[in-house]
Amino acid sequence: MPTTPKQIAASLTELWSPRVIAEVDDSYIKVAKVSGSLAWHSHENEDELFLVLKGHLKIEMEDRTVEIGEGEMFVVPKGVRHNPLAEHECLIMLIEKKTTLHTGNTVTEKTRSLADQLRPT
C-alpha cells in the first residue's frame, strides 16, 4: 500500500482528481496526478500551494506563467486567476484551506467535489 505522498499520487488512476491525504488545522494536504490543462479559475479567499513531487508543472496567470520542477513549490495568492497545466504526467501536492473549492466558482467536467477528494485512495 502506498505510504508517501509521491507514492499515493502515483497510484491514482484519475487525472486532476485531488485526494486528501492529511489535514493540518484548517488546511487539507492533497495529492494529484495531472496532465494537460485544468481550467482557468481563482479562489477568492484562499491561497493555494503547489509542490511538484515528480515532473514539471506550469501555472498560467493573467500576467505571467510560472514553471515549477520536482521539489519546487509556488503559492498562487488568493484572488489570482490561474490555470495549472502539465505537458507530461506530473505528480503534485497541494496545501489548501478546507474551504477551497477545487476550481473556485468555475465548474467543468474536471471539477471535483470535496466528497470526491475525501474518498480513500
Rank of each mutant, 00 (worst) to 15 (best):
M1R: 06
M1K: 07
P2I: 11
T3E: 15
P5N: 07
P5Y: 04
Q7K: 13
I8A: 04
I8R: 02
I8M: 01
A9K: 02
S11M: 09
T13W: 04
T13H: 13
L15R: 10
W16V: 09
W16E: 09
R19S: 10
E23N: 13
V24E: 08
V24M: 08
D25R: 14
D26M: 10
D26L: 08
I29Y: 02
I29T: 07
K30W: 03
V31N: 08
A32G: 14
K33Q: 12
S35D: 07
S35C: 14
G36K: 12
S37G: 04
S37D: 14
S37P: 00
L38S: 11
L38R: 00
L38N: 08
A39Y: 04
A39V: 15
A39D: 15
A39W: 05
W40D: 10
W40G: 01
S42R: 15
E44M: 11
E46D: 15
E46M: 11
E46R: 12
D47A: 12
D47Y: 11
E48C: 09
E48L: 12
F50Q: 01
V52H: 06
V52K: 00
L53Y: 06
H56A: 02
L57R: 00
K58M: 10
I59F: 01
E60N: 05
E60Q: 09
M61Y: 00
E62C: 01
R64M: 07
R64Y: 03
R64S: 09
V66T: 13
V66P: 00
V66Q: 06
G69E: 14
E70H: 03
G71C: 03
G71S: 07
E72Y: 00
F74Y: 15
F74R: 03
F74P: 00
V75Q: 07
R81T: 06
H82L: 07
H82N: 08
H82A: 04
H82M: 11
P84H: 03
L85A: 05
L85M: 12
L85V: 08
A86I: 07
A86N: 10
H88T: 10
H88K: 15
C90P: 04
L91W: 01
I92K: 01
I92T: 03
I92R: 01
I92H: 01
I92F: 01
M93G: 06
M93H: 01
L94T: 05
I95W: 02
I95V: 14
E96Y: 02
E96T: 12
K98R: 09
K98I: 02
T99H: 00
T100E: 00
L101D: 01
L101Y: 04
H102N: 13
G104H: 02
G104P: 00
G104E: 00
N105K: 14
T106L: 12
T106V: 15
T106F: 11
T106M: 14
V107W: 05
T108D: 03
T108Q: 02
E109G: 13
E109Q: 09
T111H: 04
R112I: 08
S113T: 15
S113G: 10
L114K: 13
D116P: 08
D116A: 12
Q117H: 04
L118T: 03
R119Y: 04
P120K: 13
P120N: 12
P120Y: 05
